[in-house]
Write a protein that binds this DNA or RNA. Structure first.
Lengths: 196, 196, 196, 196
DNA sequence: GATGAATGAGTCTTCATTCAT
DNA sequence: CATGAATGAAGACTCATTCAT
């Protein structure tokens, strides 16, 4: 049988790389950088430990790559909020609900967790220092101000309120499932922080 | 000078043990269980690494001891809330402010962090599973209900509201200093979650 | 086109096997046994890594095969020296020049290097122990003695002088290009060691 | 009993560090950089593998340190040649004999070996490129010229002759014990290369 | 009691070798 | 026959724990 052609191999490589990123995202999000053994990543991705190193030079590089890409993705998501349908209140409500989605959950968890984690590689600390949360928050300010004008949102310094709001949302995400009995806080309860 | 007598030696031992617990509390709170090297604890306590092992059998035992004692202390603090002066609203406000105190801060940080941390010793996981946050929350329910009756607090399921409230407060504590620009959320903003 | 017949296939196999040996010779000669990654051999031979294993059972076997064949070849070359044209001095001069040839260079480099290398497979160590350089040297003794009698060579124990001479020649080969400024030592300067 | 004081500890540390350097020198000299396992260094130094890392950050750092210090030492030794007693011939003869001493042997072996080794850390390659052998050779040129004038040495380009001479001496050193039967070449035979 | 050098089990990383295609 | 992705054993490195002083 003939060997796979270049295109097929490239595709396998891309898929595998993606799988490893997804698997490591889950583990890093739960256990943090230092607490994550490469053996756990391998198990989560159902591959051998050594294979990770055909796709990433080190655990550190894998982690940094992950953080960089997630930050970029987060930025894109926030930039798009004002294109969502509905009023500003509905747009932010929507965004919040998305953040709790199975899909984005781990991404926000990892970013949130890593921001506080002193065990993270130097480079990651730098990324967070250079790109303060406000950069992301600022993207939402126009939407929020619009909501204030229409009376949907509480008056007050927009960046301050938004910062607190997302501090809280992010913190809750980190808990993965919040309190067992009541689940994650109702988005509407959270939105009270912003609502008039 | 005569050598120290038995009682004095015991006192030194107790003090030293306490110092090690305080030092390790700070480090564990910031870096988590796995991320904390015994060398860092020793440095924080200004002692040698080996000395830790004269007071605790292992890093694990030290950690477990810490968690157990902090949980006990937390319970005592919550039980006392209704003895504080002022209205229920003022009592909870007071409690919240205390939690952000330099003194208790690390304790709450560590507990909150450890609850989510999958790198923690099995025994600690068990402690949290057996002693759900509700046990602590339940201690505040009477106070809260009293506040609802007097119209200070929002109506609704008391345990649910309190659970969310402290989930949020605890999460914020973990961040140590919150957003750099705005600092920790204003306690009054937080209390909006409970307030009518 | 009709498929290749058995004979043609055998020829391809032989050629391929030879290519792999040539490529690995170059790499082993430069980097030694342990320092040579199979990936480097594959690259040098412009084939895939896996293909090596269709022609050799292991890196070790490839290496041993190489050493054995090179030793055999070296023996043949030395046996032929006295058939070369010219006086004994010219014959040894000729041999020496051949050793620095692009063709034989790597072979002598590898043998010389491997003789000193403690990272080499056990079997190779044995080959060198069982077949001491003297076996090769002995082949040249008649030629040398002839030259002594004719007054071309310095008097003295022939095997001793020859051993030193080739020790030196081999050592220089290992350096590949000697000192950058002056290149490899002039063969005539080397021959002074033997000359009267 | 009271703990060791600072000075004693510093001494232990210095001695240990020196022991590790000596042990690793022996192993690196015989097996090269890549072929040397840290476990072998540990065994040679009769310590645990982990201890190496309290004194050096990595096998690479240990190796680089070694090379740098040996180069420095070599320079000092060559600079001192013209202070040795005797004629220039005797001075170089003396130097050569020193190089074969049990003490310096491994040092010259390692440097010589590493210069040719393509498996060595980048930094080491740079050291050798920046500090070509000629820098060391140049230190001996005055002595050699003096010997030429007094008729002890062969006429000819001093740097060229010296370069070849030491190329050969170094190469022989690498073999550790040369041919078993005849031992290392007689220094006087070697000196013929330089002698008139 | 106190110190920090020393150990060794556990993790990260490399690379010869295998195997599905 | 040929490829290169995948595996896993072996080697580098970290750090909780021990122990001589």
């Amino acid at each position: 049988m003939s060997p796979l052609n270049k295109q097929q191999l490239d595709q396998i490589r891309d898929e595998r790389r993606e799988e490893i990123k997804q698997a490591s995202l889950k583990v890093f999000a739960r256990r943090g950088y230092k607490g994550t053994k490469t053996s756990l990543i391998a198990k989560e991705a159902s591959i051998s430990e050594g294979l990770i190193y055909r796709y990433f030079n080190s655990k550190k590089e894998l982690f940094i790559t992950l953080i960089q890409e997630l930050m970029e993705e987060a930025r894109r998501e926030l930039e798009h909020v004002h294109h969502l349908p509905g009023t500003p209140f509905e747009q932010l409500r929507n965004l919040t609900e998305n953040m709790f989605d199975e899909n984005s959950k781990y991404a926000f968890m990892l970013i949130e967790r890593s921001r506080k984690d002193e065990n993270v590689p130097e480079k990651v600390t730098q990324i967070f220092e250079q790109l303060p949360p406000n950069v992301l928050i600022d993207l939402l300010v126009p939407t929020f101000v619009k909501g204030q004008k229409s009376g949907e949102f509480s008056p007050g310094e927009p960046r301050k309120l938004l910062t607190w709001y997302f501090t809280i949302v992010n913190s809750l995400l980190t808990q993965e499932q919040g309190d067992e009995e009541y689940g994650l806080p109702d988005v509407d309860v959270l939105m009270r922080i912003l609502a008039k």
